[in-house]
Structure formats: structure tokens, C-alpha cells
């Protein structure tokens, strides 16, 4: 097999409009930061999909694992008092 390297993988995040969050849109190969940004522009914003881009080396991403999903997120499951609907507000005081 050829020992050609395509460069490391990068994750791409696009901001659609100013003020909106950056959203993950995909990934690509590039050899360095500059090329990653240019490739991201050419690959993910050919039709005005965004006005700002982040590129992050995929190796820098830390993620939760699906096997731990239950126990990892468990601490928030029994804390219904974190939601506004937990509280009783009397009628007649208007929107709160």
C-alpha cells in the first residue's frame, strides 16, 4: 500500500450569521492550520453557508462515550427543581 499521508483530520464548525453559535458541519484532511481553514472554506461554504469558520484538529476533541451515557448524565436526571416548571406561580402576577 502507498505510504502517502493525506494529513491529519480536522473538525469544521461554521457560524451561519453573526451572533449565532458555531455548529459542527463535518471534517476534512489538511496538513496545517492555514490549509485546514482554506479547505474548510472550499468544502463547506461554497454557497454562503457561513460567515465564520473554526477548524480544530480532531485529535484535540474529547468526547463522552455512549456506553457511559446513563451514568455520565445521571446526576441531572433527578433534579427537576432546575426547571422553571417545577415552581408554582400564582395567577394574576403576569408572565414570569
Amino acid at each position: 500500500m502507498s505510504k502517502d499521508s493525506q494529513g491529519p483530520m480536522w473538525e469544521v464548525f461554521v457560524q451561519k450569521k453573526a451572533g449565532q453559535p458555531f455548529v459542527h458541519c463535518g471534517n476534512l484532511h489538511a496538513y496545517d492550520k492555514e490549509m485546514a481553514l482554506q479547505n474548510a472554506r472550499d468544502l463547506y461554504t461554497r454557497r454562503g453557508e457561513g460567515m465564520a469558520l473554526w477548524v480544530v484538529p480532531s485529535s484535540a476533541i474529547v468526547s463522552s462515550s455512549p456506553e457511559d451515557m446513563g451514568s455520565f448524565f445521571e446526576p441531572s436526571n433527578d433534579k427537576i427543581y432546575r426547571h422553571p416548571t417545577f415552581y408554582q406561580i400564582p395567577d394574576g402576577v403576569g408572565h414570569m
Partner: peptide, 16 residues
């Protein structure tokens, strides 16, 4: 290609 790579194959393998 990147969608396939997320399954554990590499770009080089596929191109080859």
C-alpha cells in the same frame, strides 16, 4: 470519505 473514515478505515486504504 470522512464519513467512511469515522468507521475505522483510512483515506489511504480507500484510495489504495
Amino acid at each position: 470519505y470522512t464519513a467512511a473514515e469515522s468507521l475505522g478505515t483510512s483515506r489511504d486504504e480507500m484510495l489504495d
